[in-house]
């Protein structure tokens, strides 16, 4: 564990807490893409199957359980509890166009052909693009509430901090995983446009609004 990895994990944790609190406090999931949340639930489910095979640490187990449970809780809030507030007309991204290619790619480029390994690789590929339905929704409506922007900023920062963690691990431990690194870079690049708007608008107290 190094400082980049820890702050990355904490940013990820913060993002999820912000999202759950926003939905719970406002009793509304307006502006939140249910499609992205479905993808995150698939990502965590396929990646954390090792919960039943390998014990790393209490921290590791607790975080994995939290990410899994919170992703299902978020789906419950969006699709059941606050269904009436879900903005499905603007959440029209076809997730099969992300899930299918991620799976095919995981079958083609993976470290080993075992069930756990292929599913881990699939989850890494899928995570890198899982935010696209949410970004698509923001671009479609042309705006995002500030709280949604904070959520996106924390969620995007998490993988960017992981990249620093991977550089650190490569330098200090001569340890690296090319699949995670390339996917992590793709994931971070997808947020760049948003990061720019966040710094130039949201941090200056303005609402995130795209030019018409």
């Amino acid at each position: 564990m190094n400082i980049f990895r820890l702050t990355g994990d904490l940013a990820h944790l913060l993002a999820i807490i912000i999202l759950l609190l926003k939905i719970w406090k406002t009793r509304s999931c307006a502006g939140i893409s249910g499609k992205s949340q479905i993808l995150f639930a698939i990502v965590y489910t396929t990646r954390y199957l090792d919960l039943v095979t390998t014990f790393v640490s209490a921290y590791n187990t607790l975080m994995k359980i939290f990410f899994l449970a919170s992703s299902y809780a978020t789906m419950y809030l969006i699709y059941i509890k606050f269904k009436a507030t879900y903005d499905h007309n603007h959440d029209t991204f076809r997730i099969e166009f992300l899930v299918a290619p991620a799976f095919v790619l995981a079958m083609l480029i993976t470290h080993a052909y075992t069930l756990l390994e292929v599913l881990w690789t699939f989850s890494i590929y899928l995570e890198s693009v899982a935010i696209l339905p949410q970004l698509f929704m923001v671009s479609k409506t042309g705006e995002a509430e500030s709280i949604t922007s904070h959520y996106l900023f924390a969620l995007g920062s998490y993988r960017a901090l992981y990249i620093l963690n991977w550089i650190y691990r490569y330098v200090m431990e001569n340890n690296y995983d090319l699949i995670a690194i390339v996917a992590g870079i793709v994931q971070t690049v997808l947020y760049c446009d948003f990061f720019y708007l966040y710094v130039t608008k949201v941090l200056k107290g303005k609402k995130l609004q795209l030019p018409a």
Binding site: R5, V56, S57, N60, M63, N165, R169, N175, D177
Partner: peptide, 10 residues
Amino acid sequence: EDWGYKHDEL
């Protein structure tokens, strides 16, 4: 194959 690394990171 470095499985430890894979299981450790989130």
